[in-house]
Design a protein around this nucleic acid. Structure first.
Lengths: 124, 124
DNA sequence: GGTCTATTCAACCTGTTGGTTGAACGAGGA
DNA sequence: TCCTCGTTCAACCAACAGGTTGAATAGACC
């Protein structure tokens, strides 16, 4: 399922070190050693982080002698943004509908007070 | 720091049940019981999930008698999309620059290498 | 071959997560 | 008052995540 990858991508980005690594890879490919340098954790720990990022599909790696350069696969971002945008849009549409209903109710209240019109059923 | 909340939001959405809950809240507010019904986990487990979503800022809750209706705060999505878009854009610009460089290199190759090679894309 | 560098594997420790059950709380309804 | 409903709290548990250290692998250089 794509749901599975979505979970892995969100989980991968939930860690600040991994987000930082992604940010740095956006500026250019790099090896494990280079990526590990800025942090005060061991190289092995960073290697684990990179494995998580790789399993999520966010980074791919190639061989260059004994180096394993890491490359950011930015298209994977689309998985998230599509999910997010879908529900954000849905929530906003609902919000606007609610706004419209409230506005109409307000307007009808005004009319009712002014002209004493008739009843207002109002759906659920 | 905002970094802290970013971690919490990504972590919150890394769980499929929590993503599903968010999806359902996008369609309208609901109480814990309603939200728990579709899953075969206990109500207490769902209550914990909601606490995670609440701590991330994605969900707020009010009181209505003994109910605690949950409401989706869709603006929090912006935190993520801003982060994502920033680095996606950065990666894409780099990709385009690389494309340009490669195209130019190809053209210069065709013309025989009359010039030296000084740049290797090692930005700080 | 020996050695240096870059990276991974394996074992281990600790704190967190996601789940369980059972009890408690808070507000309506009989 | 007592009862029920919706929700949370507390204790517990298995699994996982993020970190460590030490040993192993794989190329490059002498």
């Amino acid at each position: 399922m794509a749901d599975e990858q979505l979970s892995r991508v969100f989980a991968a980005l939930a860690d600040p070190i991994r987000r930082d690594i992604v940010a740095r890879l956006a500026a250019g490919d790099a090896g494990v050693g280079e990526l590990a340098a800025p942090y005060d954790v061991s190289v092995q720990a960073v290697s684990k982080h990179l494995k998580v990022l790789e399993d999520s599909g966010l980074v791919t790696r190639s061989r260059d002698a004994q180096r394993r350069p890491c490359h950011l696969e930015a298209e994977v971002f689309d998985l998230m943004t599509k999910w997010i945008e879908r529900y954000r849009r849905e929530a906003e549409e609902r919000f606007q509908r609610l706004d419209t209903v409230l506005a109409r109710m307000g307007a009808e209240d005004d009319q009712q007070e002014a002209t004493d019109h008739n009843q207002e059923g109002t759906a659920s």
